[in-house]
Computed example of a mutant assay.
Amino acid sequence: MKRDAPSFAALRIFAVAAQRQSFRDAGQALGLTPSAVSHQVRAVEDWVGAPLFLRQVRQVRLTPLGETLSERLSQAFFDIDTALGQARRQSVSTRLRIAALPLFTNVWLVPRLARFEALHPDLSLSIDTDARVVDLEKGEADIAIRNVAAVTTGLFGHKLLDLRATPLCTPQMAETVQVPQDLARATLIDLSVGRAGWPEWFEGVDCPRLKPARTLTFDNVPSAIDAAAQGRGVLLGLLPLVLDAPNASQLAAPLQHPPVDAGAYFVVCRKADRANATVQAFMTWLIREMKADVVRLRRLERERLK
Rank of each mutant, 00 (worst) to 15 (best):
D81A: 05
L297R: 13
V44K: 07
V268M: 11
A272M: 09
R95P: 01
A252Y: 00
A18D: 04
A277W: 06
T33Q: 12
S7E: 09
V134H: 11
R24K: 15
G157I: 08
A18F: 07
A76D: 00
E67Y: 00
R55M: 06
E117N: 13
A114Y: 09
D25C: 05
E71I: 10
G66I: 09
A186L: 13
L73D: 05
D79I: 03
T105C: 09
Y265A: 10
D81K: 08
F202Y: 05
A144L: 04
V37C: 12
D46P: 01
V148A: 14
A229N: 08
L251D: 09
K211Q: 14
F156W: 15
L123I: 15
A100C: 14
I13L: 00
A229T: 11
L161G: 01
V295P: 01
A29H: 03
M283Q: 14
A264S: 15
R12H: 00
P51K: 11
S192L: 05
R89F: 02
S223T: 10
D244A: 15
R42N: 13
G194R: 11
E117I: 09
Q28A: 07
E71A: 14
R112P: 03
A165L: 12
K138D: 08
V37Y: 11
G139K: 00
R89D: 03
S91N: 09
W198Y: 13
L113T: 05
K2T: 10
A224F: 02
I145H: 02
G194L: 14
D182I: 13
L119G: 11
F23G: 00
T94E: 10
S91A: 15
A196F: 06
V107D: 11
F218K: 05
A50Y: 13
S7Q: 12
A36D: 07
R55T: 08
G263W: 08
Q230E: 15
R112V: 04
Q19F: 06
L216R: 13
A213C: 07
I189C: 10
A275E: 10
P254D: 06
N276W: 01
P102S: 14
S70E: 04
A229L: 06
A196C: 04
V179G: 06
Q59R: 13
M290C: 04
R97V: 08
R214H: 11
D122E: 13
I189R: 05
T217C: 09
L235R: 05
E203C: 07
T170W: 02
A174G: 07
C169A: 07
W201L: 05
V44R: 07
Q230N: 15
P254Q: 04
V148I: 11
S38A: 12
